[in-house]
Design a protein around this nucleic acid. Structure first.
Lengths: 244, 244
DNA sequence: CGGCAACTTGACAATGCTCAACGCGGGTGG
DNA sequence: CCACCCGCGTTGAGCATTGTCAAGTTGCCG
């Protein structure tokens, strides 16, 4: 259970041993990237796919006003841009938030992996879950009040980090500033701060430095209107055995 | 230039004549669906792919509070759910807004079409553009002020409807109530109404009944911070000739 | 130990929401 | 064919959530 990528992809379904070995090989050549560093910029035409192995990265756009909107968090095991194969230019920027370990996978390598049916399905699944997550974020920002917004985000991260083994009970590392959180949930830094105070005062969370503890997961999920169905984890069915 | 689906997919790149004929065949068996009718519900496990031929449909979720968030508009030429092949259960609902003409395409039929390289690429492109649009909506709702939000939406629809030939100059049919618009841009119906007044008063649009005219496209785009790059139309490049 | 970034807190402003009432228009049933 | 009715659009008044500005504190890194 060493390989993070394998672990993530197997959240969808088990992989043949041969495929696992391929994945082990893919993540050999990792490189370190500092915090707050753009990996791919809007307008670029990248030729490789980036995979996050350690740390938090994000997708974002900046408006003429200077307002930045973060559209996705990329956590260990997440691909940055499988789009590369079809769309020519990036319509948004991808950057690290914390210090990260990143692997650059060449197009050709991805195409090789895609020839393996189980891997191809798993990649599809990952891409579709990313899209479902994006939809949920739209709902989060569009329809929930501020306290629910940040609560919902914290719940989502708990589950996502759990599947790659980066939680310790209901506790995980959140290497992100309140300002970045604000750009994510579409509030101001000041207001995010006040909301975190409230969540602390309600006995729902503890957040000291980068260390987050969710004290009462059930209550936080209820408060936030969190329903994990959009992550499509552990769907008990025979469907995925069917052909692509 | 009769087939709407062909027209939409060729916004990405030209298709072989043989593929066009296949597409002509696909859209033969259309059916009419009334307005405000669910096509697929959250929790369903659909086995077909729906394609919109006429009218407006949408993706949405409803929260416990009763608040509805619309996450996407589906206009003629749009597929509802290519996800079907990987994810078991729907995590959101798809419904018509206006009266629609819809085609149900069986899984097997889609798989057939996907064997044609040019069509497979075009389907991928359509899916990726849908995702890019979703990201732009997140930015729209998260980072733009109310007047820009509705302006941006109107600009997007102009371009999308243009590619399927459903505009008449800078004029098109918007078969949607102000309440539905509100659920889309995450405002209240009352406030959307006031914004439309302002846009009218500024000489930017005309909206009588379902008939929208954008009087000054450039100014509306500038006001809304609209940049069409995320629609990935007409990318002049040799990239798409490359292999998938 | 100094400095800078992140966090915290307070006072005030404004954008957008709620509630409420009314007009208009198209569809339906008598 | 007319009348009614309901949904949609419109407008007003007051309110609440969240943003802005500003100043002070904490804590980490060099």
């Amino acid at each position: 259970m060493a390989n993070l990528l394998t672990r993530k992809l197997e959240a969808f379904g088990p992989l043949p041993d041969a495929d696992r070995l391929l994945l082990d090989d893919v993540i050999r050549s990792a490189r370190a990237v500092g915090p707050r560093t753009d990996l791919i910029r809007e307008g670029d035409t990248p030729s490789d796919v980036n995979l996050i192995l350690e740390g938090f990265a994000c997708r974002y756009k900046v408006l003429p006003t200077g307002r930045r909107q973060i559209m996705a968090y990329l956590v260990p095991g997440d691909f940055c841009d499988l789009h590369v194969f079809i769309l020519k230019t990036m319509d948004h920027t991808i950057a690290t938030l914390s210090a990260c370990t990143v692997v650059k996978i060449p197009r050709a390598r991805i195409l090789e992996l895609m020839e393996r049916p189980a891997l191809a399905r798993a990649f599809w699944w990952a891409a579709l879950v990313d899209e479902a997550t994006l939809r949920e974020w739209l709902v989060n920002i569009g329809a929930r009040r501020s306290e629910q917004r940040v609560g919902h985000l914290l719940c989502e991260l708990l589950l996502r980090l759990q599947t790659v083994g980066l939680t310790n009970g209901n506790q995980y590392e959140l290497p992100i500033t309140q300002g970045e959180l604000a750009d994510t949930v579409s509030l101001t830094g000041v207001h995010v701060n006040r909301i975190l105070q409230r969540l602390r005062a309600s006995g729902l969370i503890t957040l000291k430095g980068k260390n987050l503890v969710i004290l009462d997961v059930e209550r936080l999920m209820a408060l936030s209107g969190f329903n994990s169905n959009y992550l499509h984890l552990a769907e008990q069915d025979g469907f995925r055995e069917q052909s692509l």
